[in-house]
Amino acid sequence: MAKQYDVLFRLLLIGDSGVGKTCLLCRFTDNEFHPSHISTIGVDFKMKTIDVDGIKVRIQIWDTAGQERYQTITKQYYRRAQGIFLVYDITSERSYQHIMKWASDVDEYAPDGVQKILIGNKADEEHKRQVGKHQGMKLAEEYGMDFYETSACTNYNIKESFTRLTELVLMAHRKELDGLRLASNDELNLAELEEDGRKADGTANSKSCWC
């Protein structure tokens, strides 16, 4: 059987309730946008394989409930992520203010080398905007993150932001990936390697069934 991907890793979506995390994910994985959908209770995930510089990357994207009390549950998944989207809603000043809290949680619970990116979603709702684009850029700069304004509704910057975070994770794991090229018949499961705390030697063959 031909291998389906070269590398597997996990991304995580966090941010206040109602900022559009689930919609971002649906747009990216299924290219769908549903004005009518249900709130996320607990944790959910979707998968997608994309091609980055000739590397087939299988990403598993975890979607989390935004309400504060679910964090006792969702925090347990921070440590399993290689990349994290911090999402706010440009029509909600409060969701932007809360990014600070989300970022400090990431510092506390996520693994050290985790890649982060800041997202200001609902960019199509210009008439309701409460957070300027420059504010988003400034905050991202302070945290040393990349920044995108996105709209799941109009499909604006969705692919770009997901691809960017994927690239950042790939770059952060370049060493393991170079090893991969040598032993190109194997899949590299970054998620598993990180979790088990093993040192990657490039010949990892921990093929797992996530389907």
Partner: peptide, 20 residues
């Protein structure tokens, strides 16, 4: 083995009493 914790699938089942 696949590290699928119960909290991943049962949270919504139980908290919403299977209504979803």
């Amino acid at each position: 083995k696949q590290k699928i914790d119960p909290i991943l699938y049962m949270t919504e089942w139980f908290m919403c009493a299977f209504s979803r």
